[in-house]
């Protein structure tokens, strides 16, 4: 089928070789690419060789997982569904209250982190605080709150609350910095005070997006609150951990299913509301755009 190009190819109707061999220009050197590839390959190799994992067990992992799955999903008892759903609700509650607390602190903080509203030095300091909060997982924060509140849901609420301030604040100030100058200048032009400027120049522009980010964070926090339960602060995570610890596989399986179904259910409802908020009434329900925006923010993430 292909023309034999190495020795005087037979002339076909579609043969391209009307001229002599064309010479391609020299390919450019891609130093950065090669250096980066080598470094990454070296790091991966180092990790692979260095990690003290029992690799032989990896081959058994699917079988182990299957055994575990069978144990979990064959001994479930219907009578446990109701109490476990109650525990899932507790997890959702922890996530909601935590998100609310985070939002209450993040909104004012983000105003002071937005360079178009305050001076650069102030913004920089606030941003470092937000970064620090963002870097620490909720569960580590929870370690600090458990001795304060005991093994109660409130420890989880505060852990999630404090842990989400960083992320929410960062997303908020990015939104605020992205708003149009016009309305701010207009409020300045009529001699508005700083708080009036926030109220009339900034808030109306960003409210829909802020709201939808808070909801999005709520979805993320449901997962966080489920794992906080591992420490014993309540919610479905606590039951799941207990069940696994005491090898009550049926309960563990049921709890796992309820976590997955509950999380997806809340995601779905919250996602619909978010889309409606951002796009206004009559928006189509096909997903993507908000998450795409989030993905864009991450891709272009500015961390300073």
């Amino acid at each position: 089928m292909r023309t034999d190009l190495s020795r005087g190819a037979p002339v076909r109707a579609t043969d391209l070789s009307a001229k002599d061999w064309p010479q391609l220009p020299k390919p450019p050197r891609q130093v950065f690419k090669w250096v980066a590839t080598t470094i990454i390959a070296a790091i991966v190799l180092w990790s692979f060789i260095g990690l003290d994992a029992k690799w032989s067990r990896l081959l058994d992992a699917p079988a182990d997982l299957y055994t575990l799955g069978r144990l979990m999903f064959s001994q479930m008892e219907a009578s446990e569904i109701r109490p476990l759903i109650g525990k899932m609700w507790e997890s959702i509650s922890i996530a909601w209250m935590g998100t609310l607390i985070a939002a209450i602190f993040a909104v004012p903080l983000s105003f002071f982190a937005a360079e178009n509203l305050v001076g650069r030095p102030v913004a920089w300091i606030i941003r470092q605080v937000l970064n620090l909060l963002r870097a620490i997982p909720e569960i580590i924060i929870a370690l600090a709150f458990i001795p304060v509140f005991g093994l109660t849901p409130m420890a989880g609420v505060l852990a999630i609350g404090v842990g989400s301030i960083g992320t929410l604040g960062k997303l908020f100030y990015e939104i605020i910095e992205g708003i149009e100058r016009g309305p701010i200048e207009a409020t300045d032009a009529v001699g508005a005070s700083r708080s009036q400027r926030l109220r009339w120049g900034v808030l109306p522009q960003v409210t829909p997006e802020l709201t939808s980010f808070i909801l999005y964070r709520f979805e993320v926090n449901i997962r966080a609150s489920a794992i906080l339960g591992v420490l014993g602060v309540g919610g479905i995570g606590t039951d799941l951990t207990q069940a696994i610890r005491f090898k009550e596989w049926g309960t563990a399986g049921l709890a796992l299913i309820i976590v997955v179904v509950g999380t997806i259910a809340v995601d779905t409802v919250s996602g619909l509301v978010r889309r409606r908020i951002v796009r206004g009434p009559g928006a189509s329900s096909d997903g993507g755009s908000f998450e795409a925006h989030e993905a864009e923010l991450i891709a272009e993430s500015v961390n300073d």
């Binding site: 990690l51 992992a61 997982l65 575990l68 569960i139 794992i227 591992v230 995570g237 796992l256 997955v260």
Partner: peptide
């Protein structure tokens, strides 16, 4: 969606009970 609904620590719990304690 199912993979996404299970957080990191729950995955760890699952694998610790299935495969055992350790880095794997």
């Amino acid at each position: 969606n199912i993979v996404r609904a299970i957080p990191d620590l729950l995955w760890a719990l699952i694998f610790v009970s299935a495969v055992g304690i350790g880095a794997l």
